[in-house]
Design a binder for these strands. Structure first.
Lengths: 342, 342
DNA sequence: ATTGATAGCTTAATCCTTTAAGCTAAGTGA
DNA sequence: TCACTTAGCTTAAAGGATTAAGCTATCAAT
């Protein structure tokens, strides 16, 4: 059973395809199609369950009603959650989402942007990798709606939604200090990503302001190499036994770290304070529970998709905006003064 | 800078669009285009960075190279992980993925299938909701490649990939029994989804085989209603104090349950054995660590996308297959005899 | 010289919509 | 009666590819 075309609808009703098209697109009045005919056509379409061919429509109009979502890794709960939120709003507005993961590989990121261009997506949501500014600039120059997310490209005039990494990190570190921790280590990725650098700087500012010593451990993250990370952290703790708290710059570093500490028999909270960037069920449920900086996922997603929709609606009037949302500092047991009782 | 069309390529080189098209599609030899001309055209295309319009191509050929992925919730780590695996393989084969979440709402699921049809996706991966058999049957009847996932529709002749819920549940319950737990409660959703029923039946079989008493608690899951679930579980534990182990039928039920038990001060592992369907970082790291049945995500995803690709490659030769993969029973501290020392 | 085959292309229909421009009949005003 | 409007459509080009069928020149064989 082949799909019906607008042509068949037209010939069945002995009218032209233009008329059908106008009616389909709600331009009946504007094009002065009589209400009677409009009703007749609508009824026929309903009855025969006719659905216009989206491809032909897109070819003609240049609009696909598809949003391209390029994230670091769709399997990461953070990005998956964003994908979920975005989807809700997008679907309400008639947009579908096509996703892909860069795995933080600039080459793959470039390919993805190219592919999405080829596919004529109407708008882009991108977590940029390093060295991808040119591709993004190219999109902007082509007047294509783009919103960056999670990481900014400082040199571009473009919409961006993210959180205040520097400030949150600074506040979190300050909180640890207020709890009388004196030697706070910062475990982060060996990365030049702006958000990672901001997190580090926020920590360092709090440390310097309080005339404390900074202990920064940069580890290289590679899938399935957790034991290497553990070794590095263990080594740091042994070399610098004065460390009394650890601030993890990411979720998965913390998970690896917690596993190590459990294995080492170090009592989190009592012997070692802890703070983590990016919350997780695990941190809430762990005993003792672990303090975290929760990204405002819901708010960011909402802003993201709103910006993009607005941009897609009127490409000319839209002006870029940078939205930096505050994170939620969630204080739990791992960073309380509990350890003093030890 | 408008995008170049095949027409412009042709006229620039003073040849016909057909020639260009044949060369683009690797049919140069077959169509006896001379190697010189082929080279010339390839060079021109390369130089001017010409990329054919995918929409036009799709309109003509009827192929979009897009796979529709319909899951319960893309934000759920399980489905997100599947999405990640599928993406890898799909992209290698030139397919893009468009996703959406049913939220287990049959009405939404139907709409999604319709929308994907409208968009001419080449193949479908679906976690069906209840009452959606007709829509899926319609897809099959239209010779569209579909692979079901996670939950089967028993009445349809269709490819399916899932795990052995009954067997895994049975084995897990048997393991608990072997550890001398005598009163094992099963906490599950009040759902008629086949995989949930299988999990329950697996548990019950192990219970009956060992002449034990079954304690089944069915709770209604609704977002942000965790406290209701907690109340129900707490009530059960108070009414039936003889319960010495809990088997949670899903990940998030267990997370809620653990939170409650921590709050109640019940010592997991020592006072109460525990087993969970569907693994999670949390269960590995929790102290004591919590036993779980890990879904074979990687294997399922691989099978899923392979089946679908094969089906899409030759719709006629392909025959449906049902793949039921074994789960991984991961024994951790929460279900060892440790409690006997208490 | 004629036929046939083959290499090496081209022509033009087709996929299905959208939409600017045009056409016809009826009604209005002078 | 004639010129103009207006209502209510229709015509046909365009969007950018694919592909069956056809065309021409060359060369070999008879």
């Amino acid at each position: 059973m082949k799909k019906m075309s607008i042509k068949e609808v037209a010939s069945a009703l002995q009218i032209s395809t233009a008329t059908v098209s106008y009616i389909l697109n709600g331009k009946a009045k504007e094009k002065r199609i009589s209400p009677e005919l409009t009703k007749k056509v609508t009824a026929f379409i309903e009855e025969n369950n006719f659905r216009p061919n989206h491809l032909a429509k897109s070819l003609r109009t240049g609009k696909t009603n598809v949003i391209g979502l390029i994230v670091e890794d769709i399997a990461d709960p953070f990005f998956a959650s964003v994908a979920g939120h975005i989807e809700n709003v997008a679907y309400e507005n008639g947009y579908k989402i096509i996703y892909s993961s860069t795995k933080n590989d600039p080459k793959k990121a470039k390919e993805l942007i190219d592919t999405f261009r080829d596919r004529n997506v109407d708008g882009y949501i991108i977590t940029p990798t390093e060295g991808i500014d040119n591709e993004i600039k190219y999109l902007i120059d082509s007047k294509l709606p783009v919103v960056l997310f999670d990481r900014n490209c400082n040199d571009l005039d473009i919409s961006y939604v993210g959180m205040n990494n520097f400030e949150s990190s600074y506040q979190a570190a300050k909180y640890l200090i207020s709890q009388d921790y004196k030697n706070i280590a910062f475990v982060t990725l060996d990365s030049v990503q702006p958000q990672m650098i901001d997190r580090l700087l926020g920590y360092e500012r709090a440390i310097y302001e309080n005339r404390l010593t900074s202990f920064v451990k940069k580890v290289e993250y590679r899938a399935a190499k957790e034991h290497l990370i553990m070794a590095e952290i263990e080594n740091m703790l042994k070399t610098e036994p004065q460390i009394d708290a650890i601030f993890f710059a990411t979720n998965y570093l913390a998970i690896t770290g917690i596993e190590l500490l459990n294995r080492m028999g170090v009592k989190i909270g009592e012997e070692l304070g802890m703070m983590v960037f990016d919350d997780n069920d695990l941190f809430r449920i762990h005993q003792p529970s672990i303090s975290a900086i929760a990204q405002p996922i819901q708010e960011m997603s909402q802003q993201l998709i709103n910006d993009l929709l607005e941009h897609m609606q009127d490409t000319n009037e839209y002006t870029n905006r940078t939205t930096v949302l505050p994170a939620h500092l969630i204080i739990r047991d791992s960073s309380s003064k509990m350890r003093k009782n030890a």
